[in-house]
Amino acid sequence: MLVLGIESSCDETGLALYDTQHGLRAHALHSQVRMHEEYGGVVPELASRDHIRRAIPLLEKVLTDSSIARGDIDAIAYTQGPGLAGALLVGASVACGLGLALDKPVLGVHHLEGHLLSPLLASDPPEFPFVALLVSGGHTQLMRVDGVGQYELLGETLDDAAGEAFDKSAKLLGLGYPGGPAISRMAEFGDPAAYKLPRPMLHSGNLDFSFSGLKTAVLTLVKNHPANICEQDKANIARAFVDALVDVLTAKCVNALKQTGLKKLVIAGGVGANRQLRESLNAAAVKRKFRVYYPELEFCTDNGAMIAFAGAMRLQINPNAAKKDYAFNVKPRWPLDSIREI
């Protein structure tokens, strides 16, 4: 089965072709980072308009790269939610319009399910069941995963997501947008003993997160400095922030594995590319005798491959999940644990 995947939930336009017999055939991605950079964050209207410009050229690219004709596609999967409503509508309309034109069935996919299953695209994928940490700009959740569509929410953020805290703290340090990679790079030059920031909910007794207080602690440090903070002190604050956030994420993952009795941990989402987080989790895995699985770096951020793959997995469970019903709707808010096996 050959599935075309379309991702347009926020500020990346991604298209890909996944073959259940031969794996990923081709994928193409356009990031809007440069466009949104001058505004310090994603502008939804601009994001939607750019998706419109990019979708068809990216479709042509994946078809050319894979030497596959449009008519050979068996089904089309698209991100139905969660995400920005206008951006989601672009992907949904392209998918359903293409499905109508080609007389192919379409399937709406949960964006986070795409992230959750993306490590299975790796050459050494995990087997079910496992604990998954979904960690991105909009989400921080711990899930127990027993199979496709079999998800149990173990804990989630009560306020800011980890990626959101990265971006906001980076902005406080004048590092611009996107802030996550910038603050992580700066943290490498910081003195770990210079500042100590709180580890929110580290000893809460549950698997929930809270990062708004950590961001506020960074704000307090910045306000207590002179107008112009030297680069070394910025690095010291960045190091304190990254260390605190990584400590919390690592501890909660370890506790989730203890509570479930599982020995496999999957990391998914954009923050999963963070070097400090990977180093901390790898060290914990050696000490605690569990294994960590990461998606390939190119699949950590939003991409079409994860949507094509998630769609293909669902269609293997139920070939009738995709419909030739081209009246579409999107779900800007859509809890992952509300999804069930088809």
Rank of each mutant, 00 (worst) to 15 (best):
S184V: 04
R185S: 11
R185N: 11
R185C: 01
R185P: 01
A187Y: 02
E188H: 10
E188S: 14
E188N: 09
E188T: 13
D191Y: 09
D191V: 06
A193T: 14
A193N: 13
A193P: 00
A193Y: 09
A194Q: 09
A194C: 07
Y195I: 07
Y195N: 01
Y195T: 04
L197A: 07
P198I: 07
P198M: 03
R199D: 08
R199T: 07
M201H: 05
M201Y: 13
M201D: 00
L202F: 06
S204H: 04
G205Y: 11
G205C: 03
N206V: 07
D208A: 10
D208K: 09
D208T: 08
F209P: 04
F209M: 03
S210R: 01
S210K: 02
F211M: 09
F211I: 12
G213D: 06
G213N: 09
G213L: 06
G213F: 11
L214T: 09
L214E: 11
T216R: 10
T216F: 11
A217D: 11
V218T: 12
L219D: 13
T220W: 15
T220M: 15
T220R: 15
T220C: 13
T220E: 14
L221Q: 13
L221F: 07
K223H: 14
K223S: 14
N224V: 00
N224R: 15
H225V: 09
H225D: 10
H225W: 05
A227V: 14
N228K: 15
N228R: 15
I229T: 11
E231P: 01
E231K: 12
Q232R: 12
Q232Y: 03
D233Q: 14
N236V: 06
I237A: 01
A238F: 08
A238Y: 05
R239S: 02
R239C: 10
A240Q: 02
D243T: 03
D243R: 01
A244Y: 00
A244V: 05
L245Y: 01
V246W: 07
V246R: 06
V246M: 02
D247G: 04
D247I: 00
D247A: 12
V248P: 02
L249G: 00
L249S: 02
T250M: 03
K252N: 02
C253F: 10
V254G: 00
V254D: 06
A256R: 04
A256V: 07
L257K: 10
L257T: 11
K258I: 12
Q259I: 05
T260E: 13
T260Q: 08
G261L: 06
L262C: 06
K263M: 05
K264A: 09
K264Y: 01
L265F: 05
V266D: 01
V266H: 03
I267N: 05
A268D: 06
A268T: 04
A268K: 05
A268F: 03
A268P: 04
